[in-house]
Design a protein around this nucleic acid. Structure first.
Length: 479
RNA sequence: CGGGGUGUAGCGCAGCCCGGUAGCGCACUCGCUUUGGGAGCGAGUGGUCGCCGGUUCGAAUCCGGCCACCCCGACCA
């Protein structure tokens, strides 16, 4: 009966988001402001994200390593833009072993500054390049306004750091990561359509030459930066003296990149697919793809039903990620709701009537409640389930894409832009400067989320300056 | 940092105006009955009322101060 545990999306989107997290047991607030405890259900999702990304990162030639949590203050300050960007949000350790430290240590907000010296040590010759490293780590950024998963003081992420002989290679690396790792993962695993683009100077990473991004639209029409890939040029190579000898025996600075995605992706996942019943997890990602719930009265039926289930799910191992919920003290109805709120894509129910008739009940999470449930024969069940999982995966993607397209409007005037970003994205010709962009933000609360890599052939008039341009930009309000 | 709000049992709340020694729902424990969409009945466990100080015979309640957290805006993955 307690059905009012999740605030409807339509009533209060921010509260709905928090309720889904609580109900699905993804995370708790921690005693320290801005920090969160990632609960087992949430962490299982992170592990799935890690696995899928780690495979892609390794498939593109990278190796994992680990660099320290603490960064000497003087290292962080070596790259001017970088320190300007991060100084306001770093946590600083001033004491250790009961004494004041000679030099304060920064808790890494990102690791360029601690990886730089290692790269300088490791790289001597053109033969050492490219150097392709990734690390899985936690980082700390003292944010003003934390939000579970989307912006926490400490968060988990992966950060790739690479060094190359030429600018072209660094550029290719940044784009490969964007396309083959991040966008591919977001769309195929998370079922989240993303816009691949480049950031404006205002939005790019502190210290980068160029920042590429994947940008997604949440169910309230707001934008979420889901991943970034930076071409750092030679900025960090100069700051940390990372040089190599060319085949002509000349000494040159390397070209570096860095790129990362974080536990924010879990926030993106929640806000892309979930509904008023709770989390909706795409099958390719879901830690549990199929939950099996037995239905019975009394011990005799229980034995019969559980035996039947054992027979039915024999051979599923290796094919599906399955959980049998054989907890005896809870009613089936309770379990249906619990697994639904945790986002398990498919539920299989087996009761006495199914044992008798050779059927099972199959419920799909993307169609909540009884509407998504049907009785099907046990015969051929495995293939049917495999097809169903694929269907759910593609349906979720299609639904999210349709939603984004519906809420993306081509605009030609400032007024239209203002109107469009109330509910989604505005797509406009753009030739403005950083100041022009700031003016747009002051007026509309929206910023350029991305300048898409795919650009139209045509030209138009800049929505801000009125100048002719062939470049379009995506505007939106962001998380 | 500005605006708004909230602190009473694990969670959600009432009690406060009008001071008299803390209550309801859920959860939890035990027992019996139950189980195809969040089971029922009975008996229980659990609270320095955010913190400090003041007024008072007596403070969850009145007064002063502080703190924390949440939500909405300016910075950010």
């Amino acid at each position: 009966m307690p059905k009012d545990t999740i605030t409807p999306r339509s009533k209060d989107y921010a509260q709905w988001y928090l309720d889904v997290i609580a109900q699905a047991e993804l995370a708790d607030y921690a005693p320290v402001r801005g920090c969160m405890v990632i609960r087992p259900t949430g962490y299982a999702i992170w592990e799935r994200i890690q696995k899928a990304l780690d495979e892609r990162i390794k498939a593109t030639g990278h190796q994992n390593a680990y660099f320290p949590l603490f960064v000497p203050m003087s290292f962080l300050t070596k790259e001017a833009d970088h320190v300007d960007g991060f100084a306001p949000e770093v946590a600083v350790v001033t004491h250790g072993g009961g004494e004041e430290l000679a030099e304060p240590l920064v808790v890494r907000p990102t690791s360029e500054a601690i990886i730089g010296p290692s790269f300088a040590n490791w790289i001597h010759s053109w033969r050492d390049l490219p150097l392709l490293i990734n690390q899985w780590a936690n980082v700390v950024r003292w944010e003003m306004r934390p939000r579970l998963f989307l912006r926490t003081t400490e968060f988990l992420w992966q950060e790739g750091h690479t060094a190359h002989a030429t600018e072209e290679e660094a550029e290719e690396e940044a784009l490969t990561i964007l396309h083959e790792v991040y966008a591919d993962f977001a769309e195929k695993v998370l079922a989240i359509p993303v816009i691949k683009g480049i950031k404006t100077d205002r939005e790019k990473f502190a210290g980068a030459l160029r920042t590429y991004c994947i940008e997604a639209m949440m169910q309230d029409g707001r934008a979420l930066q889901a991943g970034t890939s930076h071409n750092l040029g030679q900025n960090f190579a100069r700051a940390f003296d990372i040089k190599y000898q060319t085949t002509e025996n000349r000494e040159e600075y390397v070209w570096t990149t860095s790129w990362g995605v974080s536990t924010r992706l879990i926030g993106a996942l929640i806000m892309s697919h979930s509904d008023d019943e709770g989390l909706v997890c795409p099958p390719a990602l879901a830690p549990i793809q199929i939950v099996v719930v037995p239905v019975y009265k009394g011990d005799t039926e229980r034995t019969t039903v559980l035996e039947a289930i054992e027979r039915i799910i024999a051979g599923w191992e290796g094919r599906f990620r399955v959980k049998l919920d054989d907890r005896d003290q809870l009613t089936p109805g309770y379990k249906f709701n619990e697994w639904e709120s945790k986002g398990v894509p498919v539920r299989v129910e087996v009761g006495p009537r199914d044992v008798e008739k050779g059927t099972v009940a199959v419920a799909r999470r993307d169609v909540p409640g009884k509407a998504g449930k049907e009785f099907v024969p046990q015969e051929g069940l495995v293939d049917r389930l495999a097809t169903l999982l694929e269907d759910i995966q593609s349906s979720l993607y299609a639904r999210a894409l349709a939603y984004r397209d519906e809420r993306t409007h081509d605009v030609t005037s400032f007024e239209e832009l203002k109107e469009a970003v109330e509910h989604g994205f505005a797509r406009a010709y753009w030739a403005g400067s950083s100041d022009d962009e700031a003016a747009v933000q002051a007026e509309t609360r929206a910023t350029v989320r991305a300048i898409p890599l795919e650009q139209p052939e045509r030209t138009g008039t800049c929505v801000s300056t009125g100048r002719p341009t062939s470049r379009i930009a995506i505007f939106g309000r962001s998380y």
